[in-house]
Amino acid sequence: MYKWFAVKRILKGVVIYAITIFLLSALFNTVSEATQRSQIEEQIRLEQTRLKNLLPAQIQAFQVERRANLIRQFKLDRPIVERIIFRTASILTFNFGKSMTITSSKGERDVSKIISETIPRSLILFVVAAAIEIAFGIFLGLKQAQKPGGKLDRTTSVVTMVVYGMPVWWLAMIIIMFFVYTLKLFPSGGIHSVPMPTGIMYFVDMLWHIILPLFTLLVLGFWGTAFVTRNIVLGILQEDYIMAARARGIPERRVLFGHTLRTAAPPLMTMAILGLLGSIGGAIVFEGIFSWPGLGNLYWIAVQQNDIPVLLADLAVTIGLYQVGLISLDLLYGFLDPRIKVGGKS
C-alpha cells in the first residue's frame, strides 16, 4: 500500500514540477531567447577568429550559414509554443547551457557544473542549522507545554512574537559588524580561508567560518519551532489517553517523550521540513551577506552580473529542491502516520 502511495506522490511531484518549469519558461521566454541569440553571435565571432585565409564574402557566407545552423539547433526558428516546450524539456533534463560570465571554481562555464558545486555548500550550512534548531526548539516547546502560562512559556511566547518579523539578514549584518569588524573574532565571510589549509586544519578552518552564520540562523530560528511544538504538544496533552497514561502511573518523562512525542511526530516533522524549505528562500540573502558560496550567493552574483542563464537555472534548481522537500515530507508523513499509509478512499 505504502509503495503505491509513494509512487503516486512522486509522480504527482514530477508533474507539478514540470508544469511549474513550463510556466516559468513561458514567463521568461523573451529574455532567455534574447540571451541565447547573443550567445550565438558570440560563438560565431569566436569561431570566425579561428578561420584564416578567407575572403570577406566567404566569411559572410560562413556567418550566415553558422547562424542559421545554430538557430535551428536551439529551435529558435520554431513556433513559440514549441520553443517554450523545448526549453522546459532541456531544463527538466538539467541542460542549462552556458553562463554569460560566471565560472565555476575550475573555470568552467557550464551552468550545471556551476550550480552542482554550490548545492553541497548550501546543504551543509542549512541542514546543520535546521538539525540543531529542531532539537533545541522541540525541547524548549515541550518544556513550554508542560507548564502552559508559566514563566518560561510566557517569556518564550513574547520573544517568539518579538522576533517574528525580524529579517535574519539584518541580524546577520549587525552580527558581522560587531563580531567581525569590531571584535575581529571571525572571518567576514566565505567557506574557507585563502589559501585553503589542508588536513585537520581544513575542517577547523571551515568550522571557524561556519560558526557565525550558524549562530545567526539559530538565534532567530528555534523560537518558531518551539512555539509550534508547544501548540501541537499542548493539544495532545489534553487527550484522554495521556490522562490514562498518567493515571496508570507511567513516569512523566515517558509520557512526554514516549506517548506525546510519538503522536506529535507527524506534525512536528511537517513543521521541521517546512521550516527547512522556508530557509531556502531566506538563504538567498543570508548567503549573500555572509558570502557563503552556496546556491543563494549565486543569485546575488547572477543578479549583479546580469547572468540570465545562471539566474534561471538557479531558480529551476531551487524550485526542484523545494519540490523534493515537499515530496519527502509527504512520504515521511505517510510513514509516520499509519492512517495515511492505509489511505485511499476507504
Binding site: 517568539t160 517574528y164 518579523g165 525580524m166 529579517p167 539584518w170 549587525i174 558581522i176 559588524m177 569590531t182
Partner: peptide, 25 residues
C-alpha cells in the same frame, strides 16, 4: 556601512522592519 561600523545606518531601518513585524505578530 557594515565594514565601517556605521551602525546608525543599519540598525534603525532593520529595527523598524522588526518592530512592524512584532506589532502585527
Amino acid at each position: 556601512a557594515v565594514l565601517n561600523g556605521v551602525w546608525w545606518w543599519i540598525i534603525p531601518p532593520g529595527l523598524s522592519i522588526a518592530i512592524t513585524g512584532m506589532t502585527f505578530a
